[in-house]
Write a protein that binds this DNA or RNA. Structure first.
Lengths: 159, 159
DNA sequence: TTTATTGTTCATTTTTATTTGAACAACCTC
DNA sequence: GAGGTTGTTCAAATAAAAATGAACAATAAA
């Protein structure tokens, strides 16, 4: 017998599905976290498969993702060899991970690329009339500013 | 005769393709902006179709998106009825648009949903033992903090 | 008018991302 | 070790997103 989702659980699932999708995570990740978040109880894979009615594969992948995010933590349960997980209350981990793992590396990569472009553009002469160069110099300002903003934002969301 | 993309143009296109993809825009938007950005010249649809070798449909859509973002601006050209566009230097428009049009509405929507959930959760009694309620209260803190962060970040990126 | 050019729209095709489920490995219980 | 659980992996199926290109509207030029 599989217990139906309560209205509250459904709402939470919807809430977190939209939330994680902002950051490009698949729906299943939001479903899993949404259910685990409201209840607060440690849960096992089987429960999630049954209650969310999604495949074992998706739950396995989803749990791996959430584990990597630090959004759920393993919990030991006496006399039960199954892996239990509990949703961490700190939702900001998901956002932080997005910044650290997705945004920052890309910005750093962008920084390198931009240097290469400046190099190329200077071949056209380092003058006021070299429009591509002018534009790339302006771009560099934004690039730098963006990179500076990240730690700033992280701190804001931290505590 | 269609002029080949220069090395610099190619680099710029790649750069902006990755950039816009962070914010969930399609590749074509990055290609168009990337090409327009380095050159700085006003351009027409036909040129973009030829030089980027992408379809008229994609360019039309992409230009519409970039126009809506304010990332490109219409430019009048004497004796030429075609619509010319020029890339605005202010790259932050794209980021700002992401915040204003995608993130903020979702956060506001999230806020409403969360109130509904709190309502539902309180039915279980407003006590310390009502774990879902406790968790939703914690979530509300993050929700609020996230919403506060947005104008902050926007200001940081502004000027 | 008629014909050519420019740009939009949208049904179809293509590409990419996600989910499924079967096969498998690890581990426990008896 | 046979049989039962638990969890992972990955090829195939499905769903979602983006690109294409043909049909169309609007306008200009002949």
């Amino acid at each position: 017998m599989v217990s139906q989702l309560t209205k509250l659980e459904e709402e939470s699932i919807d809430y977190f599905v939209s939330f994680v999708q902002i950051f490009g995570f698949p729906k299943s990740v939001g479903q899993i976290y949404g259910l685990m978040f409201v209840s607060g109880e440690p849960m096992v894979m089987g429960q999630l498969v049954e209650r969310l009615e999604i495949s074992k594969g998706s739950v396995s992948q989803g749990l791996a993702t959430l584990k990597a995010l630090g959004a759920i933590v393993p919990v030991e349960v006496e006399n039960d060899r199954r892996e239990h997980f509990q949703a961490d209350l700190d939702v900001s981990r998901i956002v932080n991970h997005f910044f650290s793992e997705r945004l920052e590396p890309r910005l750093q990569n962008g920084s390198r690329r931009l240097e290469g472009m400046l190099e190329l553009a200077r071949e056209g002469g380092d003058t006021k009339e070299n429009e591509p160069l002018n534009r790339l110099k302006a771009l560099k300002k934004w690039q730098t500013r963006g990179q500076r903003a990240i730690p700033f934002i992280k701190r804001f969301l931290k505590n």
